[in-house]
């Protein structure tokens, strides 16, 4: 045992190294993978020092369970839900359900579909939000009332509809101040017209169906 301490010391140096890699990683998915590396190295050191039970716990809970839970949490929280109208979206745009997107819908390189202004806008949005590690998820709605209601009830973060009179072809309304700032800094104003609405918690919870009429009027005016 005494002659084994040399390489244990050397391996122990890997632990702070991988921990520093986890901390300095900006992308959440990269840091998850690096966390797995940290767990593997930690389990190795614990076993070499003779603590088999600690190593098993580190591998099962610290690495397997923590990574699985954090991966699901990161995937479901780092997302911008963009509400759109069903008939304004081209058929092959990726919708909210990934199962449909997986079955070759994205593979078809339809020239008409690529040239569609909505898809161009979507590409712009995705490249912009990729810098912030956000996914853009489309949530289709049947009519403007439902769309606006979803925004007020905080089901979605922003809505994107056709602007009939404005200079830009699309109008994007968001209720999150930070999203508005990011969009304003990253997108050109002739591509999209940006709005910011303040949705209070009270408005979200005490929303009455009778308000739909006024909402509808406001929507048609734009």
């Amino acid at each position: 045992m005494s002659n084994g301490s040399f390489y244990i010391d050397a391996i122990a140096l890997l632990l702070p190294l991988s921990a520093a890699m986890v901390v300095t990683q900006a992308n959440p998915y990269y840091s998850l993978i690096t966390r797995g590396i940290l767990g593997a190295v930690a389990a190795l050191i614990y076993t070499l020092l003779g603590a088999a039970d600690v190593a098993l716990t580190e591998a099962l809970v610290g690495t397997l369970l923590a990574i699985a839970l954090y991966a699901v949490a990161v995937r479901s929280s780092l997302v911008m839900r963009l509400g759109v109208l069903q008939d304004e979206v081209p058929k092959n745009a990726a919708t909210s359900t990934p199962d449909h997107a997986g079955e070759g819908t994205g593979n078809r390189t339809d020239d008409e579909a690529i040239a569609h202004p909505f898809n161009q806008l979507l590409t712009e949005l995705r490249t912009l939000f990729n810098q912030y590690h956000l996914r853009v998820e489309l949530v289709p709605y049947d009519n403007p009332q439902l769309l606006h209601q979803a925004l007020l009830q905080k089901d979605i973060h922003a809505t994107c509809v056709h602007a009939s009179i404005a200079a830009a072809p699309y109008q994007l309304t968001t209720r999150v101040r930070r999203l508005y700032e990011i969009l304003q800094a990253g997108l050109s104003p002739d591509l999209i017209q940006l709005n910011h609405v303040t949705v209070s918690d009270a408005a979200a919870s005490h929303y009455q169906p009778s308000d739909i009429g006024s909402v509808l009027v406001g929507e048609e005016k734009s």
């Binding site: 591998a59 099962l60 990574i67 699985a68």
Partner: peptide, 28 residues
């Protein structure tokens, strides 16, 4: 030794889970 074998087989399972989640993220 038993712990080593367990880590060997369990680590692979965790990796497959992570790979599938990363794939879903790349698709969306």
């Amino acid at each position: 030794g038993v712990v080593g074998v367990l880590i060997l087989s369990v680590g692979n399972a965790g990796l497959m889970l992570l790979a599938h989640i990363v794939k879903r993220v790349n698709e969306a």
